[in-house]
């Protein structure tokens, strides 16, 4: 292709549209994973991004009469013009093959587990039974934080609890990369990630530690986590101290409870 022809193509809406789609695909599939600390983008998200870009491209080529007419030119030409018979035939074969391929991909059996959605942060119950005692989770703070003077002691205790119990799965760096981690689905939580404990109240973490995988509501399935029910092995204080340790070590601050306003007309929020 000569330089002027290339330039003409670059200003033609049809080839612009194709170009934008190709570039977007390259960016999402190959460039994003190259960024520091990044990883491959799941297929579902690639599809979602590409559909959004496609809609944008279609809007671009059709929001102006002249551009829309030019955009349609090559398509109409391929469909109708006699001199493009070969292109038409090739296109027909390629499109048919593509549809077949997609259909095959949908029905072919694979050994991989199907994609699944677990709700990482299922809604916690308002109260739980911890070793036969009721604990109200709503509005609950870490009781150990009420004694700032002995915080260092609690942290040391929490550290011990962590290294005795949590290390094999959650790892030395608290990043969910323990020795056994690769054997689990779902993977152990990565506390360093900004999407786990950084988003949660300490009472939520307490609930998850105390009740473990068996205590997950159904929205946390299909595959229940292998996290044990730690209330059978740890005391309440040990759990609170290990939570203290998690936040201290990762540098996250726990989510705090919203200040409940004093409402009128029985909009009671604080009392219950």
């Amino acid at each position: 292709m000569t330089a002027p022809a290339l330039r003409r193509s670059a200003t033609h809406p049809f080839w612009q549209a194709v170009g934008i789609l190709v570039i977007a695909y390259i960016v999402v599939v190959w460039v994003v994973p190259l960024l520091p600390g990044s990883a491959i983008v799941p297929k579902s998200v690639v599809l979602q991004y590409m559909v959004t870009v496609l809609v944008g491209v279609l809007i671009y080529v059709s929001d102006n009469e002249e551009r829309w007419a030019r955009f349609k030119e090559p398509i109409e030409a391929v469909l109708a013009e006699p001199r493009l018979r070969v292109v038409r035939a090739v296109l027909l074969v390629v499109v048919t093959a593509l549809v077949g391929l997609v259909a095959y991909g949908q029905v072919a059996t694979t050994v991989a587990a199907p994609p699944n959605l677990r709700s990482i942060h299922p809604a916690p119950p308002a109260e739980i039974t911890f070793r036969g005692r009721s604990i109200t989770l709503t509005g609950l703070e870490n009781p150990l934080r009420a004694h700032p003077e002995s915080l260092a002691l609690y942290l040391a205790e929490g550290k011990g609890v962590y290294y005795r119990n949590c290390l094999p799965c959650h790892g030395d760096h608290l990043d969910g990369q323990g020795h056994f981690a690769s054997g689990f689905n779902p993977l152990p939580a990565n506390f360093q990630d900004n999407g786990t404990i950084a988003q949660l109240t300490e009472s939520f973490v307490f609930w998850r530690v105390a009740k473990g995988g068996p205590g997950l509501p159904r929205e946390g399935t299909p595959w229940n986590s292998a996290m044990p029910k730690w209330e059978d092995f740890l005391t309440e204080r040990e759990i609170w101290s290990v939570i203290l340790f998690l936040y201290d070590q990762t540098g996250w601050t726990p989510r705090t409870w919203e200040k409940t306003g004093t409402g009128d007309g029985g909009r009671g929020t604080g009392h219950d």
Binding site: S44, V45, A113, L187, D193
Partner: peptide, 18 residues
Amino acid sequence: IADSKELAAMGGSHHPFL
């Protein structure tokens, strides 16, 4: 939404970058 291979690459169902 991700299959197990993608989940392993991302280290969970949160994408480390996106």
